[in-house]
Simulated assay, not measured.
Amino acid sequence: MSKTKIKIGDKNKINGSFIGTQNIEGESNKKSFTDKHPILVILIIPFLIGFILLFPFWDSIVKYVGNLFK
């Protein structure tokens, strides 16, 4: 990144300053939804898992596993 010499008004100079930044390596500065809202994701996932576990077919799976250990 090159330094810039800026002249503002009469005899006001800024030497050796960086003006803005550029993404030279081509990396994206965009964040994913989970990076932007981690708490929201932490709250949504348990509710989704709980909703899935409410379905009645889990009852037969629990009985099958219970019978394996009798």
Rank of each mutant, 00 (worst) to 15 (best):
L68C: 09
K11E: 08
V62W: 00
K13R: 07
P38Y: 04
T21G: 15
G9Y: 08
P38I: 06
F18E: 12
S2R: 04
N23K: 00
G20C: 02
F33C: 09
H37M: 14
G66W: 05
K70S: 13
S28R: 00
G26V: 02
E25P: 06
E25G: 03
I42G: 07
D59R: 03
L48Y: 12
T34K: 15
N29C: 10
F51V: 15
N23Q: 05
P38H: 00
N23Y: 03
K70R: 03
G66M: 05
F69C: 14
F51N: 10
L40N: 06
I39A: 09
G50K: 12
G66K: 03
K30I: 06
K11N: 14
F33V: 15
G26R: 03
P56V: 08
D10P: 08
F51K: 13
D35R: 00
P56C: 05
F69T: 14
V65H: 04
P46K: 05
I24W: 00
L40T: 01
E25A: 07
K7W: 03
L48V: 15
F55G: 07
F33S: 12
S17T: 06
I24E: 07
S2T: 02
Q22W: 05
K30S: 10
I61L: 01
I39S: 12
I19E: 14
I61Y: 10
G20Y: 11
D35Q: 09
G66R: 04
I19T: 04
I44V: 11
V62I: 07
P38M: 06
G16Y: 05
I52V: 13
K30R: 13
P56A: 13
F55N: 05
K3V: 00
H37R: 09
P56D: 08
S32P: 04
T4C: 13
K13D: 08
I6F: 02
K70M: 10
K36E: 08
K63Q: 03
P56N: 10
K70P: 08
G50L: 14
F57L: 12
S2H: 01
I14C: 11
G26K: 04
P56M: 06
H37F: 15
